[in-house]
């Protein structure tokens, strides 16, 4: 009996040096002297390249606006003047090869990068009009307005119930009724309620990986966030658990504004309404997912989403 292998596009790290060498040898898939290599090579050389943003994006009502955002780790610039608007109640996917700054950008939205000593930023982001990088902005209050799910499931070492209501607990919510209600709603929202309703007070660490990740989503949506940030939420999960989390993202669409970083092109195309392609810290192209995957403006984007590089 043969097993049909599950096909995932696995992007491999490609350094600018490799890219330049490929270009010099003239062996790129789309032929020599193509604009793909031109654009990507100029990005690699550190030149500014304008982002291609589709009109449909601009028509949407934005929940989060990123405005000429730059970020440095020490002396190394990781994000170069990214400007984009995340639409309200839609799923937006960030794709790009490893090291292109997707996760850094995501972590900049809720200022988790503040925890890293050497980080410096310029530019701004606005959440429903409030400047995120305003010096007067209270970071803790800001983070309460967002939910985040990480690559690896990170349930807290406490019961399932306490995990879900964590953000309410730290706000000092003691009313049993409120907590119970939020717990059930969030777990139902994360499609986990039926699996754990009988063991809410067991340790969350006893759940399977996929359940843990959905628990983390439940925890993230418990505080009714304005934006939900998902940082490669399926990269540590098996295909079945991945499928469940993807179904969940489908269900969240329309109710939450979701910004998801993914390495998986199929996942981006299945789950998102809009897709942004990033490369080496720059936003290359941004538009409706169907267009990005079927008729992108740039051939570089096409090359990436079809797996010809990256």
């Amino acid at each position: 009996m043969t097993v049909q292998p599950q096909i995932f596009i696995t992007p491999t790290m490609q350094s600018p040096m490799d890219l330049q060498r490929t270009q010099a040898a003239g062996q790129t898939g789309s032929g020599a002297e193509s604009p793909i290599t031109d654009r990507l090579a100029s990005v690699a050389a550190g030149r500014d390249v304008p982002s291609e943003v589709h009109e449909q994006v601009l028509l949407e009502n934005p929940v989060l606006e990123i405005d000429r955002f730059n970020l440095w780790y020490g002396g190394k610039q990781a994000i170069h003047s990214v400007t984009m608007a995340i639409p309200l109640n839609k799923v937006t996917a960030l794709v790009g090869p490893s090291g292109c700054g997707k996760s850094t950008l995501l972590r900049s939205v809720n200022r988790l990068n503040d925890l890293v000593q050497s980080v410096r930023v310029t530019g701004d982001m606005r959440l429903n009009g409030d400047s995120i990088y305003d010096p007067r902005m209270d970071v803790i209050e800001l983070r309460k307005r967002m939910g985040m799910v990480f690559q690896k499931p990170n349930p807290f070492p406490m019961s399932i119930y306490e995990n879900v209501v964590y953000s309410l607990r730290i706000d000092g919510e003691h009313s049993r009724g409120v907590l119970d209600e939020v717990c059930e709603l969030s777990l139902r929202g994360a499609a986990l309620w039926d699996e754990v309703k009988d063991r809410l007070h067991d340790s969350a660490l006893g759940l399977s990986g996929g359940q843990q990740q959905r628990l983390c989503i439940a925890r993230a949506i418990a505080a009714e966030p304005e934006v939900l940030l998902l940082d490669e939420p399926c990269s540590a999960l098996d295909p079945i658990a991945t499928g469940k989390v993807e179904d969940l993202i489908q269900e969240l669409r329309g109710r939450y504004s979701v910004l998801i970083v993914t390495h998986n092109m199929q996942q981006a195309s299945r789950t998102s309404d809009f897709t942004a392609f990033m490369y080496l810290g720059r936003l290359i192209e941004y538009g409706p997912t169907t267009e990005i995957f079927t008729k992108p403006i740039l051939r570089e984007t096409e090359a990436y989403v079809t797996g010809r590089f990256g």
Binding site: L115, R143, G147, M148, S167, I170, A223
Partner: peptide, 17 residues
Amino acid sequence: PNSMREGSYACGAGKWQ
């Protein structure tokens, strides 16, 4: 693990919490 701390910060918890 730092992922625990980050998860907590992302929920809007302060340092001491």
